[in-house]
Nucleic acid binder design. Structure first.
Lengths: 144, 144
DNA sequence: CTCTTTTATTTGTAAATGCAAATAATAGTA
DNA sequence: TACTATTATTTGCATTTACAAATAAAAGAG
């Protein structure tokens, strides 16, 4: 392996970590965290998701998610309901306070997208995103 | 903000998290962790780095790094020395066991690079890496 | 229909994390 | 030189995290 800054996982982590900590600092005054935002954003895309589904889409480990959701529930951001079709499962729904918080964080999220992609034109940005999707899918190749 | 999987910070985190957990699982049998590897890789690139420098290059928060290095020192992977030029600073050096561990992890790291970039040709890979470096640099634009 | 296996979530518990304060040394100023 | 400000690292402490085990329900086998 050559220099660190030609090593892809390094570059990926470095960029991700920098965005994550800056974003986290910025939503803290709103009483949120990056993890809370991840859950809210996933529910915004589709409400009533199962815990396991949320764990997959947010990349938050499922036992960690349980306790994160405990806190969000106490804050009135979300509500747990038992899934009608499968009593093992819990489905999570946004609550009014969660919707309000989402609306407050959205412009910040949009600003981060814009700042991160400054100097990229639309085509370049799409190529980058496609590459990141491919990269994620490529990791299937390890389950051997 | 549209669908999650067109949101760059999301794609970045998702890909990074997947690589990170898989890698972590893989080095665990060797008595290592991803964080330990990050420090070893940084020292492999340049030995005798300061704690603050290591914190920057590994994206590990400096107080977390202190305790991580405590553990690595106990395992004989690295050694702390006081910087001769500036007695406030600590410089970290790899120790023999650290070099051996690095050698064992290197092929795994190389495999991860290869798997992640499967299907990318050399030019595409370099474009992706350049984009990730730019993205990282773009975050300077928030310090306003 | 009972028994076993699989799936979904939570809980126990130890370790990792990160903010803020403490410590220690250098650099700058009068 | 003494005094203040800055920089580097560590420590205190509360929160977050994650592995493994426990719980609970559905699905499959006989």
């Amino acid at each position: 392996m050559g220099p660190l800054d030609s090593y892809l996982p390094y570059l990926l982590n470095r960029a991700g970590a920098r965005i994550a900590t800056a974003f986290n600092d910025e939503v803290r005054p709103l009483g949120a965290t990056l993890q809370i935002w991840r859950v809210l954003a996933a529910l915004r895309e589709q409400d009533g998701r199962r815990m396991g589904d949320l764990s997959d889409t947010t990349s938050i480990e499922v036992s960690t998610l349980t306790r994160l959701v405990d806190g969000m529930e106490k804050k009135g951001l979300v509500a747990r309901r038992r899934d009608a079709d499968d009593a093992r499962a819990i489905v999570l729904h946004v609550a009014p306070a969660g919707r309000r918080l989402t609306q407050r964080i959205l412009p910040i999220a949009e600003r981060y997208e814009a700042v991160a992609l400054a100097g990229f034109n639309a085509g370049e940005a799409e190529i980058l995103k496609a590459a990141l999707r491919r990269l994620y899918a490529n990791m299937d190749g390890l389950e051997s």
